[in-house]
C-alpha cells in the first residue's frame, strides 16, 4: 500500500519523537517517561486495539449488507422524530470511546443518514452508552446519572440541529479517512 507521506508528516514526527523519548527514558531510567508509557500509553493502546478493528469490521459489513434506500427511509432527511429516536437508540447500544464512533458516522452518512441525525448519533453515543451507564450509576448514583442524561439529550439535540444546518449550508462531507 502506498502511504501519502505529506498527509502523515505530523503524525510520523510525533511517533518518532515519542519512540526516541521512550528509548531515552528507559536507558537513563527517567521515571516520568517510563510511567507515561506503562500507565497511560499502554492502557490507551490496549483499548484501541480492542475497540477499533471490530468497529471498522462492523462498518465494512454494514457497507456491503445494508442498502442506501433502507437507511434513507429510516434515518434519512425525511425520517423526522422517529429517525431521531432510532438514531439515539442505535447510539446507546454502542461501546468504546467516541473516536470509535467516527467511522460509523462516515458509513451512516454515506448510506444517506441526514446530517443532523449524524450529529445526534455522535452526541448520543457519548451521552449514554448502556454498558457505561451501569458503571456510572455504580459510582455516582442513579439520580445523578438519570438527570445528567435527561438534561444532556435536549441540549445536544439542539446542538446537532445547528451542526446539521451548518453542514448542509456549507455542503460539507464526511471522508472515508
Amino acid at each position: 500500500m502506498k502511504i501519502n507521506r505529506k498527509k502523515y508528516f505530523v503524525d510520523f514526527t510525533i511517533i518518532i519523537a515519542f519512540v526516541i523519548f521512550i528509548a531515552y527514558s528507559f536507558l537513563s531510567g527517567y521515571n516520568p517517561g517510563i510511567s507515561i508509557l506503562k500507565d497511560n500509553f499502554w492502557v490507551f493502546l490496549k483499548e484501541m486495539i480492542l475497540a477499533l478493528p471490530v468497529m471498522f469490521i462492523l462498518v465494512g459489513l454494514f457497507d456491503v449488507w445494508v442498502s442506501k434506500e433502507k437507511v434513507q427511509k429510516y434515518i434519512g432527511k425525511t425520517s423526522g422524530i422517529k429517525g431521531i429516536l432510532l438514531v439515539i437508540l442505535l447510539a446507546f447500544m454502542q461501546a468504546g470511546p467516541m473516536y470509535a464512533a467516527f467511522p460509523v458516522a462516515y458509513i451512516l452518512w454515506k448510506k444517506g443518514t441526514s446530517s443532523t441525525n449524524i450529529f445526534i448519533y455522535l452526541s448520543s453515543a457519548s451521552i449514554a452508552k448502556i454498558p457505561m451507564v451501569t458503571f456510572e450509576i455504580g459510582f455516582l448514583g442513579l439520580k445523578f446519572s438519570l438527570l445528567r442524561i435527561l438534561i444532556s439529550i435536549p441540549v445536544f439535540i439542539a446542538i446537532s440541529f445547528i451542526m446539521g444546518k451548518y453542514f448542509n449550508k456549507n455542503k460539507c462531507k464526511i471522508n472515508d479517512v
Binding site: 503524525d11 484501541m48 477499533l52 478493528p53 469490521i57 462492523l58 465494512g60 457497507d63 456491503v64 467511522p103
Partner: peptide, 19 residues
C-alpha cells in the same frame, strides 16, 4: 469484501491514531 474494506480504513487511520 466488507471485512477488507473495514480493515483498510483502520490501517489508514493508524498513524493519526497513534500520534
Amino acid at each position: 469484501k466488507g471485512i477488507k474494506k473495514g480493515i483498510m480504513m483502520f490501517v489508514k487511520i493508524i498513524p493519526t491514531l497513534l500520534s
